[in-house]
């Protein structure tokens, strides 16, 4: 009896130590980023491809207003409402006093400068796959963006999801270091995969989630319920989305379906981003979508 109690105690302690290790927030060091020099012109392309403005600029913003990253947009989920923070260049209200390592640590490890986990409503799980050079370019472009003194609002997330440490366990389960689509890809398909999976995080909306809110990689881009209300977000696999590659690329540019219906919902903001990219990138995305495994029934 006594020994089994001790056994239980040791077991719990070991489990706890393991959990602490597993859920420890990751950090990117300065030395890992040595030698990277950012190009702000290239960084603008990364900015649009990665869709930062869709979440951190004001809802429905167009034109120059999409460069004001004051935060405030609300994202409903099964776990509560997340509010995008101010990530403008303002030193107090925004992230103006961060260095490049803080930035990369946030975007690729989901860890804040004070060592806390971010919630995966911030798609660091995708940005984790981004090239460091692209992040250096993005950082250089971001330096030139306007400062906003709008204060960041708190998330409306209840217990137990309010415990950020628990995100570490989530990261252990879902933070992948590999692309979802593997196998032989030609140059355009591979470029499309990089844009879709590492930057534009299309799967965050177009892939269904499991009970813990992780993407179900076995149903990659197979469509999903709309997290912010009724209806469904359509599947993009070639058995479901039967548009030609040219039609897909055109939709990502002008927002019209082949029948000239006009895109709606959060896709409108995505299209505003995609329209800023070179045509070759939109075609690459279309080529990648055609290379997706079918969703089946």
């Amino acid at each position: 009896m006594r020994s089994s109690l001790i056994y239980l105690l040791v077991f719990c302690l070991a489990g706890f130590a393991g959990a602490v290790l597993l859920t420890r927030p990751g950090v990117v060091s300065d030395s890992a980023l040595e030698g990277l020099v950012g190009d702000p012109v290239a960084g603008e392309q990364v900015f649009w491809a990665a869709g930062c403005a869709s979440c951190h600029a004001a809802e429905g913003a167009t034109g120059e207003d999409r460069l004001v990253l004051a935060g405030g947009q609300r994202f409903a989920s099964d776990f509560g409402v997340f509010v995008a923070p101010n990530i403008s260049t303002h030193p107090e209200a925004g992230i103006g006093n961060w260095d490049f390592a803080d930035f990369v640590t946030a975007l690729q490890e989901g860890t804040s400068p004070d060592g806390r986990h971010y919630y995966p409503a911030f798609p660091y799980t995708a940005y984790r796959l981004a090239e460091r050079q692209d992040l250096a370019d993005l950082w250089a472009f971001w330096q030139g963006l306007p400062a906003s003194d709008a204060p960041s609002a708190a998330h409306e997330v209840g217990f137990p999801f309010s415990i950020r440490r628990a995100v570490g366990f989530w990261n252990f389960l879902y933070m992948d270091d590999a692309f979802a689509v593997t196998g032989e890809l030609d140059a355009a398909e591979a470029r499309g995969r990089y844009l879709v999976e590492a930057l534009a995080h299309c799967a965050e909306c177009h892939t269904p989630r499991d009970a813990l809110g992780g993407l179900d990689r076995s149903a990659w881009m197979a469509g999903a319920p709309n997290p912010s209300g009724s209806g469904t977000i359509p599947a993009l696999t070639p058995d479901r989305l039967t548009w030609s590659e040219g039609e897909i690329a055109a939709y990502l540019n002008d927002g019209f379906t082949p029948d000239f219906d006009s895109a709606g919902g959060h896709m409108v903001s995505v299209i505003r981003n995609m329209a800023m990219l070179p045509e070759a990138d939109r075609m690459a995305i279309a080529a990648y979508l055609k290379a997706l495994p079918p969703a089946g029934e």
Partner: peptide, 16 residues
Amino acid sequence: VGGTCGACHDAYRQPM
């Protein structure tokens, strides 16, 4: 014109 279609569908039309 397309921008004005999208702006309204963004706010007021449910996805499929």
